[in-house]
């Protein structure tokens, strides 16, 4: 379980998070939503110790990430797989090299075992044939899936997804959402999805946390969203629905013109 306790974070004069508390329960899929710049990614980076809060604590399985020495933080990070917004694939390595990278440094696998594991991960993200390609030869959606394959290579306990569907077409977004659900079920991992894509939230999440104005304003289940009385969340959801409806209308228009 990940427990975030009253964390605050500022960058210079800019307050990003103020007294935020939340817990991520084992095995659940938590979506953290909010407008761009609301601090979703900053919050996610605290989960894995990439950022240190100005005040407050982050506990991973009871161990405090904020007070732990660097070696212990590194050890705790091995329980995580992180899918970064742009994939963050190492462009000096092939797809195979990217997925094999953590295995080479952190496992005692032989080269044959690594090869088998990489192929297994590529199969899981349904990209069996791209092992020898460079990241620059892959499309945006494929890059994200390769990054996901790298994130699951070490069989993590937690997977953090930072905007997994941003910049992707609806079909590829659905593929990514399916993958998140599939991996959560297959690997029994705890998932945290940072997104502003309500489609993705509805497809994936068990619970939803809404960040607004440096603060966590609402936490509840997906079913509870439409009954909530928080005006900011209602406005966010309404804007998303409008966008969804507009996208559907555009899609049907372009479909009819063909």
């Amino acid at each position: 379980m990940i427990e975030v306790e009253n964390i605050s974070k500022s960058f210079g004069a800019l307050d990003v998070l103020e007294d935020v508390s939340i817990e991520v329960r084992d095995g659940e899929k938590l979506a953290i939503i909010g407008r761009s710049g609301s601090g979703k990614s900053v919050l996610m980076k605290h989960f894995v110790g990439l950022l240190q809060p100005d005040s407050g604590h982050v506990y991973v399985d009871g161990e405090d990430l904020c007070c732990a020495p660097y070696e212990q933080v590194r050890h705790l990070r091995m329980r995580f797989g992180v899918l970064f917004q742009g994939g963050a694939l190492f462009d000096s390595k092939t797809t195979f090299g990217n997925i094999a990278f953590p295995l080479r440094y952190f496992s005692s696998m032989t080269e044959d075992e690594i090869e088998a594991r990489v192929q297994e991960c590529l199969d899981l993200v349904r990209l069996s044939e791209v092992g020898d390609k460079n990241p620059s030869e892959l499309s945006g959606g494929m890059r994200k899936r390769v990054a996901l394959a790298r994130a699951i290579a070490m069989e993590p306990q937690y997977i953090l997804y930072d905007e997994p569907t941003s910049g992707l077409d609806p079909e590829t977004s659905n593929t990514i959402n399916d993958l998140i659900n599939h991996l959560a079920k297959e690997l029994n991992v705890t998932s945290v999805v940072i997104t502003h894509d309500m489609h993705s939230v509805l497809e994936v999440a068990d619970r939803v946390a809404f960040l607004h104005g440096n603060d966590l304003e609402w936490v509840g289940t997906v079913e509870e969203i439409h009954e909530c009385t928080n005006p900011h969340l209602n406005s966010f959801v309404k804007a998303s629905e409008y966008t969804i409806d507009e996208a559907s209308a555009t899609a049907s228009l372009s479909g009819s013109s063909v």
Partner: peptide, 18 residues
């Protein structure tokens, strides 16, 4: 610099690498 802005350094750290 390119590794930093494309989050590759964060990715290394997130894996547990120094």
């Amino acid at each position: 610099g390119t590794m930093r802005v494309s989050e590759q350094i964060d990715a290394l750290e997130a894996m547990g690498l120094n």
